[in-house]
Each structure stands twice: as structure tokens, then as C-alpha cells.
Amino acid sequence: MSYLLCMDNVSKSFGKKKVLDGISLKLKSNKIVGLISPNGSGKTTLIKLIMDYLTLDEGSITVDGISAGPMARDVIAYLPDRAMFNGNRKISYAVSYYETAYSDFDKAKCEKYLKTFEINTDETISSLSKGTAEILYLILTLSRNTKLYLIDEPLASVDPVNREIIITTILREFNEDSTVMISTHLLNEVETILDEVVMIKDNKLFCHKSVEEIREETGKSLNEFFKDSFRKNWFGGDK
């Protein structure tokens, strides 16, 4: 069995601060994976290392057999946790940017979803609410037909109704040759759509497990399992 994403003993520090310490992780195709950890625990750093937007201190990363870097980016659709375009640009600019930049971009699919969410391409990006801008970026990302989707905090500013629509859209567009990794701490929303979960704790890989196995073995929901794993004992003692 070959893996779509292989991270081997990956470490990263910023100055003296170690953010990721010896992370080894392998993901197969045909999975929806949740990357969940408390805020500031290195989720975005991990994703940026896969994209090679940050440089590894140690270890190696391959995506579909290609070392992390510009070549590997071709098989990754990345949704950053912040704005991708200058707000003065029109939405149509963002769409044609994607069309030019990515040969795997499906414009028809993109237009269909823009219509679903009533996003008018003649308007500027800054005219969108924060939540709608997030939806726009998600649509652009999911309109690529590629192997690995890295989606960083897709739901943060979106209202509950649109959250549900986004989840449905991710499910509908998910294809078995690809893997989707979603970083989020909104566990209730993604609980039932995940195959596997990856948790980072104290800079290390804390667990990589099937969500159904967690339910079976612990009798807990993912949300409870997460909280119990990370809850600090405020009244003394370590954990």
C-alpha cells in the first residue's frame, strides 16, 4: 500500500520555540482526515510544511511520492486560513487566476457553486462578508481535481446554516482517489464526516486513529475524546 502523504520525523522550530517535534504521519487516499488540536499547537505550521511554504528543520515530507516543494504543490489544493487575494480584486479575477494557475481547475463546477451560494463574480472580494469570503475560497479550492486537499479552518467565520452546506459540499465533491485534511476545532460539525483524526499534543503526534475506532473503544464522541485528552487539571497535578 502506497501512501499519499508521508511525513517522516518532521521537526520545526521558530527561534528557540519548538513547534513540531518528530512528527511521523502517513495518510492513504480516500480519507477525510481531521487535524485537530487546541489553538497554537502547530496545525497551520504542519500544513505549511507540507506545502513547503515553511522549511523543515529535520525530517522529510512526500506527497504522492514527490518531495514537498513546487512540484508537489501541483497535487495539493490548499485553502489557507487567511485571505488569498487583495480585497480590491473582483471575484472574477480570483476565478480566472485559479483557471490560469491550475490545469486541474474545473471552471464549470466553480461557477455552479458560486451560483448556489449567490456569489456575484462582478463584485469585489472585500464586498463579501468574512463568512462568504471563506465560502468563496473553499469553492475555489474544491473546484480543483487533485489528490490532496489541505483545508485550514474552513468553518471559523461561517454561520451554522452555511457550515452545514459547506460540509455537504465537501462530502459531495470528495472523490476516492483523493484525501481531504481539514484542520478545525469545530468538532461537532465535522464529527460524522471524518474517517480519521490526527491530534498534536505538546508538539508531538498524540494520536492518528480511525474515528469509528475511537467511538468503539472509548464509548466517547470525538468531541469528548478530544476534550478529555487535552483538558488541564487546574487544581494541581499534571493532567
Binding site: 455537504t168 460524522t192 474517517d195
Partner: peptide
């Protein structure tokens, strides 16, 4: 499977 998964809001593999 796909339609069922989307309606139920669950992972297609599940």
C-alpha cells in the same frame, strides 16, 4: 453510496 452519505451527512466510507 454518495447520495446516501450526503443526505445522512456522513463519511462515504462509513
Amino acid at each position: 453510496v454518495r447520495e446516501f452519505a450526503v443526505t445522512a451527512g456522513v463519511n462515504p466510507n462509513t
